[in-house]
Amino acid sequence: MTQTAHYAPGQAQRAHDTARLADLMTTTSDAAVKLLAPRPGERILELGCGDGTLTEILAKSRAQLVGIDASDRMVEAARARGLQARQLDAHQLPFDHEFDAVFSSNALHWLHNHEAVIAGVRRALKPKGRFVAELGGHGNVAAVCTALIAALEFRGIGAAERLPWYFPTIEAYREMLTSAGFTVERIELIPQPMPLPGGMSRWLASFAAPVLHDLDEDLREAILDNAVAWLAPSLCDSHGHWTVDCVRLRFKARA
């Protein structure tokens, strides 16, 4: 799919790397899956299905899963698992009261226009259908963002417009959900430090790809090296084990 203004520049690279990081991402989603509680025969739409790793887990409930993703490569990977997946822009959902539930994990914070996404989800749901999601919340990867901003501005590169992520507060997201006609049953911020067995450098190169997408390779490497060095005192222990300062926003709402 051609990138639109709704998506951050360089997001295609982030999607390409999703499969490599899927094992880490899936472990953070167990509680969200339990909150969804999929049932046999239900039709469930998954926003940002990636390569289908989590979709495949949800399908074990014998619910009918439809996954969507902006990346054609991810959609192809999901279909290779035998899953129903479509390449769609989450801001322009074409569904009309078709699903018992809409689910998303670790995808919504990459999108820019949450009002449009939430309105599309509301249209896609049957009456009383549920919207369950987990995304980066307020304070998520705060140290990482601070280090990236510092490394960019040290070189005279404006950082504010480069950061593509939206990590909302409880109050902000609750207001968007209720304004769209949802009843919020549960919403919370959960500190959830995430270990990085492969180290910070590998993870950060993937995560920060949209921030650095148009810079020369040598400059990108220098910025990443600086960020890793500045993060070490707070995110790396004395044995060289790295942990990212993740904070999740998890919610369940009814149409």
Rank of each mutant, 00 (worst) to 15 (best):
T28R: 15
D23C: 03
R20G: 14
Y7Q: 14
T178K: 14
A32T: 07
G199D: 03
P193K: 07
N113P: 05
D30T: 12
F103V: 11
A222K: 02
R39M: 11
E188Q: 15
C246I: 04
H112A: 01
I190M: 15
E171I: 07
R20H: 13
E98M: 14
E46R: 08
Q84Y: 09
E161L: 11
Y173C: 12
D51L: 04
V141D: 04
L219H: 12
I170T: 15
C49E: 10
V75T: 10
F154C: 03
N113W: 06
I190T: 15
A119V: 05
C246T: 08
F95R: 01
I149P: 00
C236W: 09
R122N: 12
R122L: 10
F131S: 13
H213M: 14
T55F: 07
R43D: 13
P197S: 01
I170G: 11
G82K: 07
P195F: 13
V184F: 02
T183M: 00
L212D: 00
I187C: 08
S71K: 00
L108P: 15
S104M: 02
I170Y: 08
V211I: 04
I187H: 10
D96K: 07
L45I: 05
G158M: 00
G181Y: 07
G129M: 11
L93I: 06
D72K: 06
P164E: 11
G41I: 09
A147W: 04
L45A: 02
L212A: 06
R86C: 03
D245R: 05
N226E: 12
L135P: 00
A77L: 12
Q13R: 15
L108H: 13
E161M: 04
A85K: 13
H6M: 01
F99L: 03
T4C: 04
T169Q: 10
D89A: 09
R254D: 02
